[in-house]
């Protein structure tokens, strides 16, 4: 693999993924574009069915191709196009070597009948041809780095002997074993308690600083993404509706969906019995996406143009982009002024 150190690490362009379902063709990912720079943490946030996990898994080519009716677009890693890679090439050159994945549920992602030492050693033996002994010695280092006490002893543990947080640390150790450039973490802390979540996210922060690691962090939790990511992309029905620096997007959301999603969160500082803002309706079926904006039917700012015209992701000079005909204007950006704004 050519190691060009210029340009972004990962560029996804106009990615489309569709599945055949009994109800018709479900367009799960509809033209997603993402760019992740070196050493950057990019958050992918959305509700269930928004296509965030499918996007992440497609980058790793983890969705069996025979189940797909459509899969096109461009995925460039280090400047190299991955979409033409065969399964064998993905295995030999990408997965676990340059791009590693951390899943939500460490109990089902780990092999329950294999000692964790061997699970950590496996990718290093495969990709680097290390001997069993060498690989296990490196596994001890990795367990130390991810904060597992008594690492040498732990090599012989089975996954069920560890707590949920420790299992997730083991998953991260496996992901780091071949010193990847990109880690894709799909809801890595959703199954964990809040105190453990904070520790795992701190671990990601440290690793990124120490190893210049890039991370694609997939989560449904807007606060978590806003706190831990440099850049964020908000997804709705398989499309990125808003993207930009996490802090700016979070502080002044321009897409009505992002803003409503933020407002629907219960906040610690609320008085008891504060009624929450809700988003009316439900997302449209992925088998019957409307021609216009997919959020129009639920959007307080929508008008007849929104029903007809699908808004494209428009970039602003400040690095933000929003796919909306009537976005909330941001103080810094040159967002178009909404016409005929309805009262919120």
């Amino acid at each position: 693999m050519s190691q060009s150190n210029q340009g972004p690490l990962l560029e996804v362009e106009d990615l489309h993924v569709a599945f055949q379902t009994p109800a018709g063709i479900a367009e799960v990912v509809n033209g997603v574009s993402l760019t992740i720079g070196r050493g950057q943490v990019h958050g992918l946030v959305g509700e269930s069915g928004s296509g965030k996990s499918v996007t992440a898994r497609t980058v790793m080519d983890l969705i069996p191709r025979r189940t797909l009716v459509r899969r096109d677009g461009s995925i460039r890693f280090n400047g190299e196009e991955l979409t033409g890679y065969s399964e064998t090439q993905m295995r030999a050159k990408i997965r676990g070597r340059h791009v590693a994945m951390v899943f939500q549920d460490p109990m089902t992602a780990l092999n329950p009948v294999m000692r964790i030492g061997h699970q950590i050693a496996l990718p290093m033996r495969r990709h680097f041809g290390l001997s069993k002994k060498e690989a296990l010695a490196k596994a001890v280092d990795l367990l130390t780095q991810v904060g597992i006490p008594e690492p040498a002893k732990r090599l012989r543990s089975f996954p069920h002997e560890l707590s949920g947080g420790q299992r997730q640390r083991v998953m991260i150790a496996i992901a780091l074993s071949c010193d990847p450039e990109l880690v894709i973490a799909d809801e890595p802390t959703t199954a964990l308690d809040v105190t453990v979540q904070a520790q795992i996210l701190d671990l990601f922060d440290t690793l990124r600083e120490e190893r210049d690691l890039s991370i694609l962090l997939v989560s449904h939790d807007l606060s978590l993404i806003a706190e831990r990511c440099d850049e964020v992309s908000v997804m709705y029905t398989g499309r990125v509706v808003e993207t930009g620096p996490a802090e700016a997007v979070f502080e002044k959301p321009e897409h009505p969906y992002t803003r409503l999603l933020e407002d629907a969160r219960p906040l610690l500082e609320n008085e008891p019995h504060t009624l929450l803002k809700t988003i009316p309706g439900r997302p449209p079926q992925l088998t019957m996406l409307p021609t216009g904006c997919a959020f129009a039917s639920r959007c307080p700012r929508a008008d007849e143009h929104c029903e007809e015209e699908r808004p494209l992701l428009e970039s602003h000079p400040d690095g933000r982009a929003v796919a909306c005909l009537h976005p909330h204007s941001s103080a810094t950006g040159g967002a178009p002024v909404p016409t005929g704004e309805k009262a919120l």
Partner: peptide, 17 residues
């Protein structure tokens, strides 16, 4: 331990589980 966006975050004081 709760994520607090917009604040400069100190490493978590939470101790091991």
């Amino acid at each position: 331990s709760i994520p607090k966006p917009g604040t400069e975050r100190e490493p978590s004081r939470a101790t091991n589980e």
